[in-house]
Design a binder for these strands. Structure first.
Lengths: 101, 101
DNA sequence: ATTACACGTAAGTCATGACTTATGAAATGA
DNA sequence: TCATTTCATAAGTCATGACTTACGTGTAAT
C-alpha cells in the first residue's frame, strides 16, 4: 500500500507489462498471460505483488479470477507526481531568484 | 531515458530518497548524502542511475557537482500517469456498460 | 609543489527477486 | 464421483543490484 511498494511493483518490466495490459479493462489471468514471455505462474506472482501494492484488485467469477486496476492506488501515484511537479517548479524558481540579486 | 529506466530508478528506497531530497532545490552530493543511511559513494552511484534515467541533471561548480531535478523527465512520468488514469477510467466505464445490457 | 576538498570509479560481497517446474486447491460440468 | 478448467503456492535456481572500502582524478588554496 505504500509508495515504496508501488514503485517497486512497477519497476520490473514484465510486471509493468501486466499492469499496462489492465489499462484496456478487467481481465482473467489466462488472458493476461497471453502474449507475455513468461509462464502463467509468473503472472500470478506479479499480480500478487501488484495487489499488495494497491495497484490492482481481484474478483472471483466462477473458476476465473478477474483482475482490475485499483483506481485508488493509481490516483495516489498520479497525485504523487503532480505534487512533485509543483514542488519542483517552485524550487527551480526559487533557485533562479537566489542566483539573481 | 526510457520509462523502464525511470521506474527502475525510483524503485530503490534510498535512491528515491535522494530524488526526493532534490525536490527542495539543487544540491551538491555532500549535502545530498547528509542524513541518508548510506555512504557518499553510494549516493554517487544512485545519482548516476537517476541521471541516466533522465530524472536528474548535473552541473559543475568548482569542486562541487550540483544536481537538480530534470523537469523534462519528471513531466514525462507525470504525463504517463495522467494518461494511464484517463485510460483506466474509460476502460472502467466500458466494462460497466458491457455488464449492463 | 603540495595539501585539502569534493567527487567518481573499481572491485568485491551479499541479499533480493524474477523466473522455472511441480503440486495443490476450488469451482464447474458430465 | 471423476475429470477439467483456472488459478495460486512451494521450492529451487540464477542473475541482478545495492551496498561497502579502497583508490584515482580534477579543482582550488597556500
Amino acid at each position: 500500500m505504500t509508495y515504496e511498494m508501488k514503485f517497486e511493483a512497477l519497476a520490473a518490466p514484465t510486471r509493468r507489462a501486466v499492469f499496462e495490459k489492465l489499462r484496456s479493462g478487467p481481465m482473467a489471468v489466462n488472458v493476461l498471460a497471453e502474449g507475455l514471455p513468461v509462464s502463467r505462474p509468473a503472472v500470478s506472482q506479479h499480480l500478487k505483488v501488484l495487489k499488495e501494492a494497491g495497484l490492482v484488485t481481484e474478483r472471483r467469477d466462477g473458476v476465473k479470477r478477474i483482475y482490475s486496476l485499483d483506481t485508488k492506488g493509481l490516483s495516489e501515484l498520479r497525485e504523487y507526481f503532480d505534487q512533485f511537479w509543483d514542488d519542483a517548479l517552485d524550487a527551480y524558481r526559487r533557485s533562479l531568484e537566489a542566483s539573481d540579486a
